[in-house]
Simulated assay, not measured.
Amino acid sequence: MLDYRRMLMEDFSLSPEIILSCRGEIEHHCSGLHRKGRTLHCLMKVVRGEKGNVAEKCQQALQTLVQETDPAADYRIDRALNEACESVIQTACKHIRSGDPMILSCLMEHLYTEKMVEDCEHRLLELQYFISRDWKLDPILFRKCQGDASRLCYAHGWNETSENMPAGAIFSCLYRHAYRTEEQGRRLSRECRAEVLRILHQRALDVKLDPALQAKCMTELGKWCNEKTDTGQELECLQDHLEELIPDCREIVGNLTELESEDIQIEALLMRACEPHHPGILP
């Protein structure tokens, strides 16, 4: 099964849904990239919004493929990412055994540091875009938070197979409960909270890895932050324009800002990412 999942991630032509749903995207952006998973990663890049609009059915077909192949459980299933990130894994993540789910988490921890290489960064963010839209695709988060999610988050007719569940909804629910005090009532278990914080730290630098933020703030990003494309700049820009944002967007940016101010590790991550541009900020 591992070999079969790897084959599906290497060769888009084995997935009729991808051929059918992404035909236009393949023709316009991703032709001539057939081998070693490059067409699929090209399509992922298009969906992330780097080359204009993309058909919703193509995004859904890619989401389904990532759900079926489950590369977060073993990064080696994604050959394009494996090859691009080999040097980073050997230097930054050599303490983790090969194939362990924590390898992807380790790569995310080293995003925008001197140990990361550009090709690896691109392949990693392309894959994480899809992983961030279905909390079950992070095997560690799912294992540690399954009980908490069923206790706190399966409302509004959602369940694990619900077609109506908005992207990122369960993770949003988990992180809303992560910062509750005892007086505020139901909270996450300690081990689930640790995983939620791990993911929040890793996603803090890219708004596209927060589906709720991207969905509610897309027009505001276009309106206020078109020129802000560097690491962490989009969220910072939304924070600068907080009072002018539409209510839905203002609420989610306000909540994230509050989490940042409470969580020194998110602040430290932002400072580390900006360190090359501002030498001397950190000791």
Rank of each mutant, 00 (worst) to 15 (best):
H277W: 13
A80V: 10
V47S: 02
R143Y: 15
L188W: 07
I252K: 01
L81W: 03
M102C: 06
I252L: 09
H177R: 04
L152K: 00
R143F: 15
R193V: 01
S13K: 11
T113G: 03
Y4P: 00
E244Y: 07
D3A: 14
Q59G: 07
L104Y: 00
L104G: 02
W135K: 03
D134N: 14
M116W: 03
S105W: 08
I103P: 02
L8F: 12
K144D: 12
E260K: 08
N159W: 12
S132M: 08
K115C: 00
I281F: 10
Q59P: 03
F130C: 06
C30I: 07
H122V: 14
H201G: 10
K45A: 13
E243K: 14
H110K: 07
K144M: 15
P283K: 05
D100W: 03
A55V: 15
I131M: 09
L269Y: 04
E220D: 14
G52D: 10
A80P: 06
G222Q: 10
Q265M: 01
G168A: 08
E227K: 08
E126P: 05
E56C: 14
L62A: 03
G37P: 05
Q90L: 12
R203S: 11
L245K: 03
P166I: 05
N226R: 12
L14P: 05
I18Q: 02
H156K: 13
D70S: 14
L20G: 12
E118T: 06
E260A: 11
R35P: 01
I26S: 00
V117I: 11
I170Q: 01
C85T: 07
Q63H: 13
K228N: 12
R23A: 13
E234W: 02
G254M: 08
K228W: 11
L209K: 01
C173F: 09
D3R: 08
V46P: 00
E275G: 06
A194Q: 09
S15T: 15
G32A: 04
R133N: 10
E183C: 08
I266C: 01
L8N: 07
E236G: 09
K115Q: 12
T113F: 01
A212F: 09
N164I: 06
P139Q: 04
M1E: 03
I252A: 00
N82D: 14
E68Q: 15
D78E: 11
C42T: 05
L14T: 14
R97Y: 11
Q184D: 12
A204Y: 03
F12P: 01
I266D: 04
T113D: 00
C85G: 04
P71N: 11
E234C: 07
L188D: 04
R123E: 13
V88S: 04
E121L: 10
E121R: 13
L152N: 00
C42I: 07
I18R: 02
D148Q: 09
C93I: 04
R48W: 04
D138I: 05
Q184G: 08
D119S: 05
T257S: 15
M44H: 05
S189K: 07
A212I: 09
Q90G: 12
I140H: 03
H95N: 10
R203Y: 14
